[in-house]
Structure formats: C-alpha cells, structure tokens
Simulated scan of single mutants.
Amino acid sequence: MSTYSEPGPIDAVIQGFDPTCRTIPLTAILPVRAIGKTVKTSHKYKQIAASIREIGLVEPPVVTPAARSPQIYLLLDGHLRVEVLRDLGAAEVECLISRDDEAFTYNKRINRLSPIQEQRMIAKAIERQVPKDKIARALDINVRSISRKMQMLDGICGEVTGLLKDKFCPLAVFDILRKMRPLRQIEASELMINANNFAVSYASAILTATPQSELVDAQTPKRLKGMTAEAIGRMERELARLQEATSSIQDTYGQDHLHLTVAKGYLGKLIGNERVARYLAQHQPEVLGEFRKIADMTSTLANEAA
C-alpha cells in the first residue's frame, strides 16, 4: 500500500534574461555571424532601415556578455537592426541581456509576418489614426500599396481568412480567390494548403479548373490564352478527381500511418531474431531485403527516406 508523502520544495525558476534592458555602445557588440555584401541591398534590410528611421527601434537586440571579456557582448539576435543603427550613425543601443549564449532559438525559430497578419496590423494602425504616409514610410512601401493591402480581404470569406492567416500568400492570390464563390474559396485554400503551394500560377490553375457555376461572375465564360473550352473542361474534371482523392487520403492517413508504424516495429523485431533471419536469407532473400528496408525506414515520405 502506497503512503502519502509531502511534496518537496519547488526549485526557483531560473530566468533566461535580465529583468531590465541595458544600453550598450555599438563598439562593444560583436556579431556571431557575418552580414553578406548583398544583404544591404535586399528589401528586408531597406524595410528595417525605414522602420527604424521612422518610428525607432521596436524590438531590442539580444546580447550576452562574452565569457572572457565582460565588457564585450555577443550579439545573439538582431544583426540587421544593429547594422542599420551603425549605418545611421548611432553610438549605442538598448539591448536585452540573455544569460545564455545559445543563439539557435532566435535565428531558427522565427515566425514571419504573413500578409493577413500584416493587413490586420495596418488596419489597427489606421484605426488609431496613424497617417497612411507614415505607415508607408515605416514599411518602405508606397501609399498605394497600403490601400491595396487594406482591400486585400474584401470579398474573401472568414473561413478562408482563418485558413490562410499564417500562410505566405501573394496579394495576387487573394485577387484570384475573390473571383470564386465562398465555398469554392474554401476548397481552393485547402488545395493550396495540402499541396503547400501558394504560388499565383497554382491559384490561377485552380481558378481555371473551377466550374463556371462556382464563380462570382457565372455569366462570363472563362478564357485562358492557348486553351480551348474543352481543355478547360478536362481540367475541371481532373481537379475534381484530385480533390476527391486527396480528401480520401486525409480521412485514412492517421490510421494508415499508425498501422505502418506498428508493422515497422514488428518487422524490426522479426528480422532481429537470428533463426528467422537465417531462414529468410536461405529461402526468401528478396522478402528479407524488403523487410529490412521497411524496418530501416526513418520517414514515411519517399524523399526523406531516401
């Protein structure tokens, strides 16, 4: 019979960062990776520079004291921000002090801002009466682009917004989806997500294969350069069959994957038996080879298992 014991004291939570930021001279900050020569000509670098010039530094860089020189700090995150500040002639920057010199998390686990998230951010800024020209300067885009981003979700149903909220879809994709009825928009979004393909060309192919009755303008026949009405009709039928097949696979994927995992483990134990392996090697070498391939699989995807 088990007896109750009092729980031991809870260890104090170790903080990963200092509770307050610290202002550090830029000359005392050493980057942990080099900035390529072409980076400063990239759109991302220009956008960061425009944002810092217009509204200042929003997110402080992350640094940690060097082990041998406490007055020197290693830059873990914010290389472009620090480089922009140097180019702008700044002498110091307010930094977040990390108590660990691990830089993998900052540089490998970054959630980029998707177009829908950016649209919502712009909408909130406009609601707070921030001038459009100021937003445009902060994002390094023209005012006309601000208006286009604000209209991006016009005619897009809420379900599609939820499906694509963290996907990197070009603005032109939403222009294509807007030509479809809501249910078809959802189907098209699911097709793009399943294929992990959000290219304008793929969305255009889905539009071309969409039945006329599922378009917003059902009276105007679809036209595509170089394609006849018969070819478009074949595309519609092929895409419908593909969508049915994809849905069927999704319904059974989890169960099939579980069965394959169990079978893989069983075959691994089976051929691990010396007597069984010897018998198969003598009488069924081809079967033994296939069993070993299955047992050695590290992924169910062909391109990863290779």
Rank of each mutant, 00 (worst) to 15 (best):
R137N: 13
L76C: 05
E92G: 01
I24P: 02
P9T: 07
L301K: 14
M192K: 08
I186R: 15
S248M: 05
S145G: 07
T210A: 01
L260T: 13
L57M: 01
E6L: 15
F104C: 00
I206D: 02
K124T: 08
S42W: 04
A305W: 09
R178H: 10
E92W: 01
L113Q: 08
E187Y: 02
L163C: 11
R81S: 00
I97M: 03
G78E: 01
L30S: 04
I141F: 08
D251H: 15
M297Y: 05
I193G: 06
T27K: 02
D101G: 02
D154Q: 08
L267M: 11
D251A: 15
Q185H: 10
D256F: 10
S51H: 05
T252L: 12
A188K: 12
I55G: 07
A103V: 06
V287G: 11
T41Y: 01
G56D: 04
Y73N: 05
M150R: 14
E102Q: 15
P7W: 04
S98Y: 01
E94P: 07
G272C: 11
V173H: 00
R33W: 00
A281H: 09
T228M: 02
A209G: 15
L75V: 03
E127V: 06
A240L: 03
D77F: 04
P31M: 03
T208N: 02
H283M: 05
L288Q: 01
T220H: 03
L288P: 06
Q15F: 10
H79K: 01
Y4W: 14
Q119S: 07
L57Q: 01
A263D: 12
R237K: 07
Q47N: 12
I35P: 00
K134W: 14
L75Y: 00
R237C: 03
S69D: 14
L88H: 12
N197I: 03
R223F: 06
N107W: 05
Q250P: 00
E92F: 00
D217R: 01
R112G: 08
L30M: 00
I135D: 11
R99M: 06
S69Y: 05
I14D: 12
A90S: 06
Q243E: 09
C157R: 02
Q212H: 13
P115Q: 04
I232R: 09
D11M: 10
L267Q: 09
N107A: 06
E54Y: 05
E54R: 06
N107Q: 12
V160P: 12
I135R: 10
Y279Q: 12
A91Q: 13
C169K: 03
H283C: 10
Q219R: 10
T298M: 06
P19L: 02
A199N: 10
G289F: 04
H259E: 06
V216D: 07
G78D: 04
D296R: 06
S248T: 07
A136T: 11
